[in-house]
């Protein structure tokens, strides 16, 4: 009964979004905003960057809602957009490192040495799963986030990331092994 209601609700929301109804957009942001923000935070490791990725996700969804063929897949579609947005941010970041002058000002402000607040935050976070996920390489972070935070089956992750099933399996296996190592190390290091 609850599922039927959810399906009807999703169909109605998508229909209203297609008519460019802003109250429908607000409803979608209220409903999925926190979930997408937490996903983006796990991926990009930065609160501000995650917030921007989610804003752009809702904007893109609002403008391109006609591309969503199955209204019941609204949440999965939003997750796909946010994952792509985060990937885009990662790519922009790497361009700045290849051509340092492009982001010189920002790099000067962002010192490699952590400040006292960052050190306190790191220490406080140490031992947490999210902190451990942040230490993984981006490829593994994506798969691990979808697998654990979104509890997606492997086949769905493969569709979401447009990756071969075996690639997802391999990344998941390596990511899980690394995650376990990091968590064990942090647990041992704790007083």
């Amino acid at each position: 009964m609850r599922e039927v209601r959810t399906l009807l609700e999703a169909a109605e929301v998508v229909a209203r979004l297609r008519e460019k109804d802003e109250s429908a957009l607000r409803y979608v942001m209220d409903r999925y905003g926190d979930n997408l923000l937490r996903t983006a935070y796990l991926l990009v490791k930065d609160r501000q960057a995650a917030e921007e990725a989610v804003q752009d996700t809702f904007l893109q969804a609002f403008r391109k809602i006609a591309q969503l063929n199955h209204p019941d897949q609204l949440h999965a579609w939003l997750v796909r957009i946010v994952v792509n947005r985060c990937r885009m941010q990662q790519r922009t970041w790497s361009w700045r490192h290849i051509f340092p002058t492009l982001g010189e000002k920002r790099l000067l402000l962002e010192s490699d040495e952590p400040g006292p607040e960052e050190m306190f935050f790191d220490q406080w976070q140490s031992g947490s799963v999210s902190h451990a996920i942040h230490q993984l390489a981006y490829n593994y972070r994506e798969v691990i986030t979808l697998y654990y935070y979104h509890e997606m089956p492997i086949a769905e992750i493969s569709g979401q990331l447009a990756l071969n099933l075996n690639t997802v399996k391999a990344r998941l296996a390596r990511g899980r092994a690394q995650l376990k190592d990091i968590l064990n190390r942090e647990q041992e290091a704790r007083p």
Partner: peptide, 17 residues
Amino acid sequence: ELGELYFAGAEKVFMKA
């Protein structure tokens, strides 16, 4: 762990839209 993170950019989305 992530329970303290809330999306607060709705108004910015409307401005951008």
